[in-house]
Write a protein that binds this DNA or RNA. Structure first.
Length: 493
RNA sequence: GCCCCCAUCGUCUAGUGGACCAGGACGCAGCCCUUUCAAGGCUAAAACUGGAGUUCGAAUCUCCAUGGGGGCACCA
């Protein structure tokens, strides 16, 4: 792999919520930049004032920060190639668009949207390809300038050659040859003075000295146009890499609103903003999205640093990938298991606080090792451990009855257990487990039965962290109190 | 309608003409461990879309078909 420092960029348009597709489009260029000791840039492509969403940019930056994908230059931190927000680069686009006119590669166009729409309808009706009909293409430049100066509304279109073909190269797919006759006189500068993506992105990538353009495959069909624009200026084009799209879990089609709604019902989401609430970690999410479209040999449990060390653009795959939430869960759980106790405790704490539980750090630190390997998402700490932070537990009477025993038999087992536990100086796995096992033996019952009764009595639930470890944390006094109460409940049944 | 891209287990993928009766991971099933739930260990089932060609030899190269995806805006 060529390790010359690259300059890459993530160039989202702030129009909606940040999702895993965006995240991956940021991840790969980031990895390439870090891998080569290069530079990763954030550029905001806000040239569509109709679709602009003021909260989107903040969400984008927040999402990147959460994942640990930090940019070296961007609208929030500046840099030598700014501004990094396209709406602030108006003058540049204007200048270069007219430069292209002067070079003969573009022309001003005065056609009204209404007329163009009519032409398009006509063409569709005649089963022709919808495209610009060339009305202003032959306009004399002096005349065109006069009309512009007179204040007439205009756009600037690229003057696409009528003949010949163009060869564009995608790093993952190789050379793609396109007949120019299949290409259109696309608009470069809109009548509001702002550029279209085609002009803005090519210009900025050149001006910001981007060496590798890594973007979604929805841009593949317009790559020939982009290469035309770049060459019209006399520049060399960067390396292009078009990432495959994410498909819905079934693999049939891309994700729709309906699919994302369904995912949310199942406790999943593709939006970064939701994923944190759902208990996903940046490590898990990153690992998940990184491996959709990147074939990493051997171990696939990767941290960001692992990814940087192994990233190779040639191992990206061009085919679409169906998302698989089960795999997200796997990676999330695996990363959680790898966290140090203090780290995991700190990450879990907000989820307890969210439920208004009185978490104290010392207790939390003791709980973490007990629940660590049981967590798939961070908020799974609640069903396992929320009860530790409540004054009392509320066992269901029927759950106190052990399998295969009656209520009074269960009460009896509980009474005998209470005697054993009460006789201990303190309850720890070391002190309590041997005598309790001996008791089980003496009663000719199974550990499952007796420990089950105690589990429900002490934790209030049938599923919990290991029993004796939990008892140690809760403390002898509360354990005896709760077992006593359970006996009363059983006797009343 | 036209243009472009893609195609290996259910899913993500390894594989760049012989080392492939196709490897890994997730999921699924079974077993082991086990006080619940997990985690962990072991085992199993599971794929080269189809057809022509090139070649001594093809998952790998070519063509066609099929399927899937994307695009054809004064949106990105």
């Amino acid at each position: 792999m060529n390790l010359k420092p690259v300059r890459t960029r993530f160039a989202p348009s702030p129009t909606g919520r940040m999702h895993i597709g965006n995240a991956r489009s940021a991840l790969y260029p980031f990895l390439l930049a870090r891998r080569t000791g290069g530079t990763f840039i954030l550029r905001i492509e806000d040239t569509d004032q109709k679709r602009y969403s003021p909260t989107a940019e903040a969400e984008l930056i927040e999402g990147l920060g959460w994942l640990g994908i930090h940019h070296d230059e961007g609208p929030d931190i500046g840099g030598p190639f700014g501004p990094y927000r396209q709406s602030e680069r108006r003058a540049i686009y204007h200048e270069y668009a007219w430069k292209l006119v002067d070079l003969g590669h573009a022309f001003p166009c005065f056609c009204t949207p209404a007329r163009l729409e009519k032409v398009r309808q006509e063409q569709m009706k005649n089963k022709q390809n919808p495209r610009y009909d060339g009305t202003c293409r032959g306009l004399e430049l002096g005349e065109a300038r006069r009309r512009v100066d007179a204040g007439e509304k205009y756009v600037i279109r690229f003057r696409m050659p009528k003949e010949g073909s163009i060869t564009a190269t995608d790093l993952l797919r190789g050379e793609i040859v396109t007949d120019n006759s299949a290409l259109d006189d696309s608009v470069l500068l809109k009548s509001d003075g702002l550029p279209t993506y085609h002009l803005a992105a090519m210009l900025d990538d050149h001006l910001m000295e981007i060496t590798h353009v890594i973007r979604g495959s929805e841009w593949l069909p317009s790559m020939p146009l982009h290469v035309h624009i770049i060459r019209a200026f006399g520049w060399d084009e960067p390396e292009f890499v078009h990432l495959s799209v994410f498909l819905k879990p079934s693999g049939k089609g891309k994700l729709s609103k309906r699919d994302t709604d369904q995912a949310m019902k199942d406790g999943y989401s593709i939006f970064l903003g939701d994923m944190q609430d759902l208990g996903y970690t940046p490590e898990g999410v990153l690992n998940w999205i990184a491996l959709m479209g990147w074939g990493v040999p051997e171990d696939d449990l990767l941290t960001l640093d692992d990814m940087i060390a192994r990233f190779d653009i040639h191992h990206l795959t061009p085919s679409p990938a169906a998302i698989n939430f089960a795999k997200l869960d796997h990676f999330n759980g695996a990363h959680i298991r790898s966290f140090r106790t203090e780290d995991l405790a700190a990450r879990l704490k907000p989820y307890f606080l969210r439920e208004n539980l009185a978490v104290d750090d010392a207790t939390l630190l003791k709980i973490v090792p007990l629940i660590r390997e049981r967590l798939v998402t961070l908020d799974d700490c609640l069903p396992f451990a929320a009860w530790f932070f409540r004054e009392t537990v509320e066992p269901k009477p029927e759950e106190l009855v052990a399998k295969g025993l009656t209520a009074s038999q269960s009460a009896d087992a509980a009474r005998k257990s209470l005697e054993v536990l009460a006789g201990l100086p303190e309850i720890t796995p070391q002190t309590a487990e041997p005598p309790m096992r001996a008791l089980v033996e003496r009663l000719s019952l199974s550990p499952n039965q007796v420990f089950g009764i105690l589990r429900v009595a002490v934790t209030g639930q049938t599923v919990s962290p290991p029993l004796f470890e939990s008892m140690e944390i809760v403390g002898k006094e509360k354990v005896l109190e709760r077992v006593t109460r359970a006996i009363v409940m059983l006797e009343k049944m």
